[in-house]
């Protein structure tokens, strides 16, 4: 379904007029880097544990204007997943109720484009959680850094193989190594990848 059509339908389905701003044209040229930590990788069941969003204005990553929220999951944390997201039950106990966290997120991102790494998954989780209450999916444009990276890197490879792991991309782009496994850390790395990739000329040969 074309995006415009989907947006038009969703706009009519919106249950809460307070969120009409999501369908307005973006208020500025900023984009938002987004990352969520979840309890697992199953889009039907995974719950949000933390959300981080950072505003990007051109080449400037506004870490001073960021959203970095812990979410209290509805169910119980499965111990086997703690190793994956590094959040213990006691860490998320102080988190916000999921609806409140998502409201803050929606107000922070507005209708601006979203940037991230395999953002499709994060957006799917958010859509599942806001759907029953608001009747919509996130209407924002989604820019995946792995897609940008692939397009720019493919012409420079010999065998058509592009390392699209987050770490592989970080190395490929020559970005600093930073502590990860937090929503904020990954959102920041995603933002760095985006500013580096955005507007980069299409390469003829290796460019890093």
């Amino acid at each position: 379904m074309p995006n415009a059509l989907r947006r038009a339908i969703d706009r009519r389905r919106l249950k809460d007029p307070a969120f009409a701003f999501l369908f307005e044209p973006p208020p500025d040229t900023a984009v938002i880097s987004l990352d969520c930590e979840t309890t697992g990788l199953d889009r039907k069941r995974a719950e949000l544990l933390s959300i981080a969003a950072i505003r990007i204005d051109g080449g400037r990553i506004r870490t001073s204007e960021r959203l970095d929220l812990l979410v209290r999951p509805e169910g119980r944390l499965r111990p086997d997943n703690v190793a994956f997201h590094w959040l213990r039950p006691m860490d998320v106990a102080a988190g916000l109720p999921v609806d409140e966290a998502l409201d803050q997120l929606l107000h922070f991102i507005g209708s601006r484009p979203l940037v991230g790494y395999y953002l499709e998954f994060d957006v799917a989780i958010i859509n599942r959680l806001i759907g029953p209450r608001l009747g919509i999916r996130l209407p924002n444009r989604v820019i995946d850094v792995s897609g940008l990276y692939y397009d720019l890197t493919l012409p420079t490879t010999k065998d058509g193989y592009v390392d699209l792991s987050f770490e592989g991309m970080r190395r490929g782009l020559g970005l600093p190594q930073r502590p990860r496994h937090t929503a904020f850390g990954d959102a920041l790395l995603g933002a760095m990848m985006y500013v580096k990739l955005a507007g980069m000329p299409k390469p003829k040969r290796r460019w890093w």
Binding site: G59, R60, I61, T63, S64, L188, K196
Partner: peptide, 13 residues
């Protein structure tokens, strides 16, 4: 720490 931003500048900028 709270007030820090990160800037990215291209060669020649």
């Amino acid at each position: 720490r709270k007030a820090l931003d990160i800037g990215f500048f291209r060669s020649g900028e």
